[in-house]
Design a protein around this nucleic acid. Sequence first.
DNA 1: AAGTGGTCTAGACCACTAT
DNA 2: TAGTGGTCTAGACCACTTT
Lengths: 271, 271
Amino acid sequence: MASKEPKPTVEPGSTRPGIDRELYTPPFLQLANILRQQIAAGVFRPGDRIPSETQLSEQYEVSPMTARRALTMLLDDGLVTAARGRGTFVKPLELTKATFGLSALEELFGGEGTSVRFLSVKTMPATARISGKLGVALDDTVISIRRLLLRNDSAVAYHREYLVFDPRRPVVEAEMGITSLQGLFDGKGTSVLKCGELKVQTTVLTEEEARLLDAGAGSAAFRIEHIFYDFQDEAVSWGWFIIPGQYLTFSASVGSRGPSRGSHGGGGASS
Amino acid sequence: MASKEPKPTVEPGSTRPGIDRELYTPPFLQLANILRQQIAAGVFRPGDRIPSETQLSEQYEVSPMTARRALTMLLDDGLVTAARGRGTFVKPLELTKATFGLSALEELFGGEGTSVRFLSVKTMPATARISGKLGVALDDTVISIRRLLLRNDSAVAYHREYLVFDPRRPVVEAEMGITSLQGLFDGKGTSVLKCGELKVQTTVLTEEEARLLDAGAGSAAFRIEHIFYDFQDEAVSWGWFIIPGQYLTFSASVGSRGPSRGSHGGGGASS
DNA sequence: AAGTGGTCTAGACCACTAT
DNA sequence: TAGTGGTCTAGACCACTTT
């Protein structure tokens, strides 16, 4: 068992950051942040090879697995590439590796003062298009829903949705939270849905949409199409949101701006 | 040397899938896929607790670290949540957790038959807006670039960009690949850029943009704004792409549709 | 042959939760 | 007190690349 001798993590005079065992952030995260920092500072430039697992594990006095974990983290972040037998290299910036999430929607729909106004809820025979999307027979009964999402009494989104109608099971929408759509955003109450596919497109408001959304016809808007499947792999819901462009911007970032998120707690980096 | 004794991974009669040591896919991935499969099949439903690390490591005869790695994988996928001291639970579907990549841009710009036509390259004094974005003084010299991105001789994107002009260093654009922008998409040649921020918005084509892009004025388009920083954390480039909606759709999926990489049809291997 | 990334083992300690 | 997740150790083997 290792003794607790006073071993300085860095030599006196060396300003190189080391692993602080007393710190709250775990060593693998500290090391990952150190490397991120060095890459961001230009110590390692795109194309450069960064120290190997063994070098890192010796230099920072951690086990190989811990060093490896830090490297894996950078790998997942897309900051470096690993070539077996050759080394790990800093990746140059790549625009197409950026990703954006729907968190902007959360702010739109999830905050305070949001409500839903139903425009119509009815059953109807499936059209060819609906039948194709939901995988039901033509003219089979489906549920059609049109609603407005309001924030502070002003409409920010128009939602159109078609649901399979199966009298044998409880109406799906009941479990999805028909009154609020909330379940899909806060992750509570969608226990019947297994997975879904989303598409983000751009469109201009039709006359009807413009009237409902209190915006100008012909102005720009996002169209977010969705289709959800249950655990039998059968489509359950198909529809789309229309959201005027003024209410929504998606953000993303590429490259490293220094130490970032961790598994728990913030990242307090020194110097 | 380890002996090669015949040790059955599953008991005879049990149809439960096990870890196949002879397989090419590593055990941690096999286990992750098995769990993904079970979640997708509804064996574990949203809210259910899945087996603990120790249970998994015993049941599938792998080390705790390996079991843990499979669980970490599901965690990163957002399929489960882990509560220390309580267990690991299947997460219900959450719409806002979907992430979209910009790989759709790759197809637009990265494929064969893509080229660039320059409309104008010139220097100019920074306007208030440009000065604010690039962090240069008002009326400082910046480079203005306007170009069209073509695919098969038809314009698919209009790009407008402003670059800081620093006579002391080589013109940045030279390193970015002024003739093709290619570097930003294939990840070669952007060694001076550290990071960037992107915004995805929706807009309608102006008269000028419509003429250049050979589309109808007033039709829908994406506006992808970008700003890039160098390793001194100074803004280097600010600009935006205008891409008609017909050329671009962003896709994403939520939830689990089964194993990400197929092939784990093991069954009772050596029994 | 040496170095490197990728993976795995068989434990261990800690903090937290539930009983 | 027992179970669980989170982390760490100090090795090991393999496939691959470079010298």
